Simulated assay, not measured.
Amino acid sequence: MSKQLTRRGLLATGISASLLGSVAFAAAAGGRKLVVIVARGGMDGLSVSPPVGDPNYAVLRGAIAIPASAALKLDETFGLHPKLANLHRLARVGQARIAPAAAIPARIRSHFDAQDLLENGASRVYGASSGWLNRALNTGPAPLKALSVGAQTPLILRGPVQAQSWSPGRGLDEQAERLASMLQDLYAGDALLGPAFASGLQTEAMADALNGATPIDARNAGALAVSTARFLTAPQGPSIAVLSLGGFDTHARQGAVDGQLAGRLQVLDETIAGLESGLGATWKDTVVIVVTEFGRTARVNGTLGLDHGTASTLVLAGGALKRGGIIGDWPGLAERSLFENRDLAPTLDVRSVFKGVLVEHLGLDAARVNAAVFPDSAGARAVTGLV
């Protein structure tokens, strides 16, 4: 078997990252980039962007409230968690905004069901078998290409259009290389598995070329983000990348300025900073969306944590953003304003933000986005003026 479809074989033949990009990805439309970060577990929006100017916030949160003196100020009502220093820096120059009360279209507190709805883009759980971002790939004037970063392709990118997938790790040793060669021979005549396996080898080889054959530790958020950015900026690289960050299910001992959640927010901040650094000049043409399946309860529980809630903070970052204030309305935290007397009430459907980004940033047709990408979503009007 020829070496040229194995990782080492590709590198040994001197194939450049440019050519690998041409093999693996079709041309991206317009050079604009979109990165979606899914914060899994139910990220607490009231800690991501603490509404320290709301008089009910400190009362509801008690010992886990972020003190106004520690919050990184956005305006008279909102700040950012102190671990989000890079995001705050971007906000100060108009390259980050928050939607502080965003939610999926149905009121669900199950992780599995809520993540399904977040990623399928329908109006009900299991309302679509494909992901909304996969459906978006063939909606524009030219097909878009996407990259999934992680061990599994998330639902948001699953569907009829094959997305590239890269799972960072220690790389393949000699024995694994031989196994890859055997599998490639085995799948050579398979119309489905053959191209998929070859594509995976090409993506892995491209990762090696872009990273100088240095293995990337998936636990190093900044390095992982920089490597993701290198894929996006490779000649004819993908337009879209999706990453998942876990660990946001903080039922007990959540912490405040420091602690369990603070550690996860620091990882998120390092990820955004790594993307900015790795993208370089392309950052000005990039939008990053950070979204979660649901928020947490407004009141702290008896174990100094928070239970599954409803609305949370959606974060936008990137050099392509227009400067602006908060996105959507703020319902407040007065008892009469809480959803079911326990949660931050949603005022914005997350699909409204997704639509606005797809149409205004990636140039997709609004009618097709409404009909094909987000069916049955007439009530979720696109947010305009984001880019």
Score class of each variant (00 low, 15 high):
1 M>W: 14
6 T>A: 09
9 G>Q: 11
12 A>H: 12
16 S>V: 07
17 A>Y: 07
17 A>T: 04
27 A>T: 15
30 G>S: 12
31 G>Y: 12
32 R>Q: 09
40 R>I: 06
42 G>L: 09
47 S>H: 02
55 P>T: 13
58 A>P: 01
61 R>D: 01
61 R>F: 07
61 R>E: 00
62 G>L: 10
62 G>I: 12
64 I>C: 04
65 A>I: 12
69 S>P: 01
69 S>R: 10
70 A>L: 08
70 A>D: 14
74 L>G: 08
75 D>I: 01
77 T>P: 06
80 L>Q: 03
81 H>V: 11
81 H>S: 06
84 L>G: 02
87 L>W: 02
88 H>W: 09
92 R>M: 13
93 V>P: 05
96 A>K: 10
100 P>L: 10
100 P>D: 04
101 A>T: 07
102 A>F: 10
104 I>W: 06
104 I>A: 00
106 A>H: 10
113 D>L: 15
116 D>R: 03
119 E>T: 01
125 V>C: 08
127 G>Y: 08
133 L>P: 10
134 N>W: 03
135 R>Y: 10
136 A>H: 12
146 A>T: 12
150 G>M: 12
151 A>K: 01
153 T>E: 07
154 P>L: 05
155 L>N: 06
157 L>Y: 02
159 G>I: 05
162 Q>N: 09
169 G>K: 02
170 R>M: 00
171 G>K: 03
175 Q>A: 15
177 E>K: 14
177 E>H: 15
182 M>I: 15
185 D>V: 02
185 D>R: 14
191 A>G: 08
193 L>S: 10
196 A>S: 13
196 A>R: 13
197 F>L: 03
197 F>I: 09
197 F>V: 03
202 Q>T: 14
202 Q>D: 12
204 E>P: 01
215 P>L: 07
218 A>H: 13
219 R>S: 15
220 N>G: 10
227 S>K: 04
228 T>N: 03
228 T>A: 04
231 F>K: 02
231 F>C: 04
232 L>R: 08
236 Q>K: 14
237 G>S: 09
241 A>C: 08
242 V>R: 06
249 D>E: 00
250 T>G: 03
256 A>Y: 09
257 V>Q: 01
261 L>G: 05
262 A>H: 05
263 G>K: 12
266 Q>F: 13
266 Q>T: 09
267 V>P: 07
272 I>K: 12
272 I>R: 06
274 G>Y: 11
277 S>I: 05
278 G>W: 06
282 T>K: 13
285 D>S: 08
285 D>C: 08
288 V>I: 13
293 E>F: 14
293 E>W: 14
297 T>P: 00
299 R>F: 14
302 G>D: 07
305 G>W: 04
305 G>P: 02
305 G>N: 08
308 H>N: 11
309 G>L: 01
317 A>H: 00
319 G>V: 11
323 R>S: 15
324 G>Y: 13
325 G>K: 11
325 G>S: 00
329 D>C: 08
333 L>S: 06
335 E>T: 14
337 S>V: 05
341 N>F: 03
345 A>I: 04
346 P>N: 07
349 D>L: 09
350 V>T: 03
350 V>I: 12
350 V>E: 02
351 R>D: 01
353 V>A: 13
353 V>S: 00
360 E>L: 10
365 D>N: 11
367 A>V: 00
369 V>D: 08
370 N>F: 03
370 N>W: 06
371 A>M: 05
373 V>F: 13
374 F>H: 10
374 F>I: 12
377 S>A: 15
383 V>H: 08
